[in-house]
Amino acid sequence: MQMALGESGGALVIELRETRLDAAVAIRFKDAIRSATVHPGNPVILDLKRVEFMDSSGLGAIVGAMKLLGPERPLEIAALSPGVRKVFRLTRMDTVFRIHPESPQAQTLPAAE
């Protein structure tokens, strides 16, 4: 699970460097978020600009990551492709997350594992 970490106005930015967030990688994604969020920063912005496809397992993993972070550290989502946006919209999970239309301008942090 490739991720790049950044900082943007106090937020921790996690850019997912994968083209698919699906059932095959959902568990690895949650583990990687757990590792990445030892870095400070609030809120956590998940940049999905490279993700072309997400299924319900990927969505479930994002919800799991949100619950992992807890209410004091909101998880926000950025840069959804049309297919990913469709899954959020159909399930109405776009009402739960703050969704940024564009990727945040982030200062790069040292590479995640």
């Binding site: 919800v63 399930t91 739960v96």
Partner: peptide, 21 residues
């Protein structure tokens, strides 16, 4: 059943998506 977002379920969306499309 239409998903209820506020329940923050981590699964159970699959067949709803299939039926929607």
């Amino acid at each position: 059943a239409t998903p209820e977002p506020e329940l923050l379920r981590e699964g159970g969306y699959g067949w709803f998506l299939i039926r929607s499309l």
